[in-house]
Design a protein around this nucleic acid. Structure first.
Length: 111
DNA sequence: CTGATGACTATAG
DNA sequence: CCTATAGCCATCA
């Protein structure tokens, strides 16, 4: 169960992000956004999960702005090309779209 | 059993 | 942009 969550997070491609609720749904656990958050919090760093690619539905990092974990996540995202401006990420640009048909309707990652 | 909590989300004004 | 509200749900004191 929690494993399904981790597998979904692990599937998020580099340079893309997904919201907690999106991960929950893709993993087969609708309305379990908070559960996803807790699973990530309990997953040891040794699991090497791309947890930093999971953000809030509005594109903001879930941690308190300026906190250590917040900065860590921001750093990792920017390191892989995801712009975090004012603590926010453009979901329109970086939201992970696992479905190809929907991917075609996404604006180009130009800029 | 009850109430509080939180790496959440959606909607409204 | 911001605050307020209301759902949500596993977990824990």
């Amino acid at each position: 169960m929690a494993r399904r969550i981790r597998e979904t997070v692990a599937a998020i491609p580099l340079g893309k992000v997904a919201s907690y609720g999106q991960v929950a749904e893709l993993a087969g656990w609708p309305r379990r956004a908070r559960y996803v958050a807790r699973v990530l919090g309990q997953t040891p760093a040794a699991a090497r999960l791309p947890w930093h690619r999971v953000v809030r539905a509005d594109g903001r990092i879930a941690f308190v702005e300026g906190s250590e974990p917040f900065e860590k996540q921001r750093g990792r995202l920017e390191a892989e090309g995801v712009a975090v401006l004012g603590g926010r990420i453009s979901m329109r640009r970086y939201r992970w779209q696992p479905d190809l048909s929907e991917l075609l309707f996404q604006p180009p990652p130009a800029e």
